[in-house]
Each structure stands twice: as C-alpha cells, then as structure tokens.
Design a protein around this nucleic acid. Structure first.
Lengths: 209, 209
DNA sequence: CCGGAGACTTAGAATTACTAAGTCTGCAGC
DNA sequence: GCTGCAGACTTAGTAATTCTAAGTCTCCGG
C-alpha cells in the first residue's frame, strides 16, 4: 500500500497551467510567480519522465500525455475537495464573516471587501465590532482591530503599520489561521497597509498570545 | 476553479497513520521519523479545524471524521496512482532492473536486494555489468559502479565512500533519477556504505556529467 | 528593426519538513 | 508498588524544498 506519487504542489502547478495553457496566468491564480510554476511543472515532468507541455515562445500546448493527464488530475482535486468539505465544511467552503473595528474600517477602501474578486470569494460580510467574544460565540470567523489581547486559545497574526502607523491584529480560532480565507484577507490587508509591499511582513504568533 | 486543498504531504502522513493506527509504523513506511508524522498530521488537523485521531498513550484511534476521511483519501491516492501510471507506466509501476559492477556487488550484503522489504518492492533483479550502453538499450534501468563517466544525457548520483573507500556512481536516465525506485536503492546504498549515516551524503549532479 | 510577451535560468531568500533528543503517560512484569 | 518499555508529544536546530527577483532568449507585430 505504498503509493508512488508525484507531489501535490507540482500537480497543482500542472493543473492550473494546463487549464490556462499559460504559466503566467496559472501563476497569478496560484498566487506565485511564473518562474515558480515553471519550476514545479518541470519537476513533475522529470519525476514522470514524460513531457506534459510543448513550450512555444508565446504560450503552451499540451502533449498527448498532458492531454490525458489533465482530466484525471482535475477529478482528483475535485474528489479531494469534496472529501475534505465532507468532514470540515466550514473551513473549506464557507465564506468568512469578518469583524472589523471601526478604527480599522476607516482605513480600508470605501467598498471593502468588494474591491477584489479574490476577496469576495472568501468574505461573506463584515460587522463592525471589536469584541473578541464574538469569535467564541461563532458570530464572526475572524476579527481585525488595533492591538489588544491577550487572546488565549485564539490565533493572532500581527500586521505591522508602515512608519508610525499602529499595528493591526488579525484574530481567529487556531484552526482557521491557515485556511485560504484567512490568507486572502491577510494578503489584502498587507497590500493595503503598504504601497512598498516588500518591506512589511505579517508576524504570525502561536495560539495563546 | 481554485481548489482549497490540504497539502499532499500531510495527507500521506494521515493516510499511513490511519491505516496502521500508529505514527511509528506509518513513519517507517514513509521512511521518516515518528515525530515528522506527528507534526504533519497535526498540521492537517489544524488546517481542517477537525481532530482526526484520538491519541492514546499506546496508540491511536480515528475520530468519526477521521473514519470518514480515510477511505476517500485512500481512493484519491489510488486514482492518482492510476492516472499517473496511465501516462508514465514504467516509472511508477515497474520494478528496476539494476546493473551492478562486480566490484561493487562484492561489497553488498550476500542476499542483496532481498534483505529489505522496501528494496524488494523496487527492484526486480540485477545483472552483473558495468556497461553504460545497457541503459540506453533499456536492458537495465540503473547502473551502480565505481567512478567512470562522463555520462552524457544520463543522470548521475555520486555515493561517497567513508574514509579512503572509493566513491560509487549511480547512473540512470534523467527521468528516472527522482523516482521512488532510485530513491529506495540510493537510500539503501547510502546505509550500507556508512554505519555513521549522518556523515555521508549522496551528491546529485545534473544530467550530462 | 524595435518593443513586448511569455517562457527559461539562476542565485539567494524564505518557507517547510525532518531529525534528534528529551518529556510524559500508562501498561506489563516482577 | 516499582521499573522498564512503548508510543505519542515537544522543541530547537538543520536540511530540503519552494519561491522570488533579476536577467536571458525567442518570436511576433508594428
């Protein structure tokens, strides 16, 4: 029962690239650079010993093997998604209800979170609050506010301010800290806080800080 | 079409641990330490927000969610294996025919490669040869011999000797260098060459050296 | 003959996974 | 009741992988 499998990372890269027939577009879907996708796909092709794409100067074509492989891989990802949602529905399919302190809300774009398609996919709505208790009662899934805490039993990610601006705290249940919804929201907050995005990094702390 | 997926590494750890109901046994199947499996499973549980195991002092039990998840995950791995074998049959299902130079053979255990279950799973048989040409004619899948080369168009992994012992060369087609068969064989050779395994590392070179 | 788009390559940085060593808990044998 | 053992857990440090950034190449269109 020892499976010999290519790594999921390389398969995701392949699947996205094959759907778009473009490393660049795939990269933006996956939130990485085109070089990363290129490397992952090459790694997959090496491990299989089979070329999946024909590289053209302006895009990609699937080889016969790639053409055969794509639908199977897509189905595997769908099955995996279904299986995962069956046991952890909230995490995987539900959009977040976001609590935002008014002070922070004032610094977000007018139409947040509807300014970005990606964010709309991850956020159901938001309520103005700074009450951590609403996390425990499940009224909200995450909370964004200026400092505070400690947040025993909750996960905290600190979003530093640029210059003298105050840091923000992103708080949620520990199981939600690494899910895609949290990541999308954090990424957007980071972007908003810094037009020099290279210089600011969120600081992630363990639960209970 | 953006899937939200747990990482394959964590799923493999879960699947093996769930089948064996033991991190330790799973670890030995996967060729890592029990701590690594424990960490991976915990990471998966965190990302799902659901406990998959109940930890007992002397073993594991699946939770209801784990019980539900296991068969789906097993099936996903099987489907993935099938899909992969359909486009790259040789790499994924066939056992290797190994070429070994007599000089090296003399330094292997009497019953190599039948001394280890893992190795038996990856090696069909071996022939005494040092002829690189047999790789190109597909009579063998990999070749183990003392130095030599260059091996244009072939992949080479160098297995250093301890002390003054001569290094060995593991040569195969580029597409085969990273497959599980090669890995299993290399791992075993490394182990044989050093009872102080921490001090020796195979050196992997690009094709064409 | 340029300029742009997209794929490729590479070094180095960032992230992730693994090991090693030590802790804790309960069972089995004395 | 001790003592030894087995297996899971934790943590710090290391190893391996993945990603980015920056630069290259090739072809197409103007």
């Amino acid at each position: 029962m020892t499976y010999r499998l290519p790594s999921l990372n390389t398969l995701r890269a392949f699947e996205a690239a094959a759907r778009h027939l473009s490393f660049k577009t795939a990269a933006s879907e996956l939130g990485v650079t085109a070089g990363a996708v290129s490397q992952q796909v090459k790694k997959l092709e090496n491990s299989l010993g089979v070329a999946l794409f024909r590289r053209l100067p302006h895009g990609l074509l699937l080889t016969r093997e790639g053409e055969t492989y794509l639908p199977s891989i897509t189905k595997v990802f769908e099955d995996l998604t279904d299986a995962t949602e069956a046991i952890a529905p909230r995490i995987n399919s539900k959009k977040f209800r976001v609590g935002i302190c008014s002070q922070v809300k004032a610094m977000l774009p007018e139409n947040w979170p509807n300014h970005s398609e990606n964010l709309r996919n991850h956020v159901r709505d938001w309520v103005e609050t700074r009450d951590v208790e609403k996390l425990r009662t499940d009224e909200i899934d995450c909370l964004i506010r200026p400092g505070g805490g400690p947040y025993a039993e909750l996960a905290l990610v600190i979003i530093p301010g640029t210059g003298s601006a105050e840091a923000w705290h992103f708080v949620c249940k520990p199981g939600l800290a690494d899910c895609s919804q949290s990541k999308a929201i954090l990424q957007d907050l980071m972007r908003i806080r810094s037009e020099d995005p290279g210089s600011v990094h969120a600081v992630r702390l363990s639960p209970g800080n």
